[in-house]
Design a protein around this nucleic acid. Sequence first.
DNA 1: GCCGTCAAAATTGTTGACAATATTGCCGCC
DNA 2: GGCGGCAATATTGTCAACAATTTTGACGGC
Lengths: 229, 229
Amino acid sequence: MAAQKSSNTVMDMASANPGTERLLDELRRRIVSHELSPGARLREQDLANEFGVSRARIRETFGILEERGLIERIPNRGAIVTRLEADKVRELFEVREVLEAQMVRLATEKAPPETWDSLVELFGPSMNEMLARNDFDAYAEANYRFRRQCIAAADNEVLSALLDSLYDRTQVLIRRLVLVPGRAQEGMRQHRKILAAMRAGRAEDAERLKRANIRDAREWFTNYQKYLL
Amino acid sequence: MAAQKSSNTVMDMASANPGTERLLDELRRRIVSHELSPGARLREQDLANEFGVSRARIRETFGILEERGLIERIPNRGAIVTRLEADKVRELFEVREVLEAQMVRLATEKAPPETWDSLVELFGPSMNEMLARNDFDAYAEANYRFRRQCIAAADNEVLSALLDSLYDRTQVLIRRLVLVPGRAQEGMRQHRKILAAMRAGRAEDAERLKRANIRDAREWFTNYQKYLL
DNA sequence: GCCGTCAAAATTGTTGACAATATTGCCGCC
DNA sequence: GGCGGCAATATTGTCAACAATTTTGACGGC
């Protein structure tokens, strides 16, 4: 019954699109948003009914999601949403540290300084007020814009794909980390410094600062682990 | 007929193993070794016959190979082995540069100095003679051992998976690059310096040297591009 | 009441058949 | 002879049915 209702909803959209990519994106979204909790079981037939496709399609999608580390499949036992252990979070941070720093470095080297003016504005004085009002949406949005613009400027599809994959796996944690008192303000200050270096064309400085930024985020995470994980 | 012969060969091994992973690994091996040339077309039914499995299995495997960037699939037109453009090689080097450097850094920080004694031996004086005799197999083997030991010591599965994926996509180029006169000797010297820093516990130096090592490899590649690509 | 056993149900694994699409080769026309 | 259209073929896309495996739950013995 629930499956029937959802099926209709999805079918409306699927009629426009062949829905090949739609299925993957929707499942990805549910997992990274924790709409599907870590450890939740994914039944092939249920999903097939809901999306109005055959189990073969679900199965192929599962293969990709497993390759991305978003689900785990146990033979003859099915698929579950990957649980994030503290140790895995450490690993993700260790990799993000150098990849995001490289992203900033390449972006600085490849794009003209004025590219970053709008971001400097975004992280400007008005953000102090927003954070004072605990308006974290604006901060999250600014971070997202920063990410997107850097990735675009870095002009590296391989790097972009890797960053997106890592981001998918830590997205929920990052959103939670913003709630820790003082973290958003500190992150904002760090991004201002990074952007200043980028606008000055000091790529190495920007890289170093971004690296420190991720390391710092990791430390905050470690300290507040029991609230976040 | 060729398919029939190969089928038997594979089936012998598949009898021991459910063969689930076997299929993926074998296809991966053929692609990264260029046993299947870039641009080569992969027909689902042919592979299904050869490996004695159904097309659904081939299809799921294709999804994973595409996710790894080893093949490209065009709707209703099939799958082909990914062609490496010069620009994509640049991207791969830009990412390898920071990831392999991080690998070395973490390995140095996490493993005791004596871990690297055997590798220092491997890259020792005896290798000069080997390279003088153009015995590149020994050098390639030493590089492989270096890689494996670092990855193990770095204790980071996420990093390990990323490095393996990047390595798969550049493996053939790296093997060819060794043929360029003087490159192997230079690589050997660089690895000696890296190992010296690692054994001394100077993680940051090791990281910096490994980064320079990859940058240098990239420059050699650029200079000899027309012979290598 | 607890535990091992076994059958029933649910779920995943695999397959072959059928539909949709693209490619190839043939034919007539200009 | 070259070219466009058309049928024949080949290949990919999709599905529903069947097999194998695991989980669930009932039963009986201790």
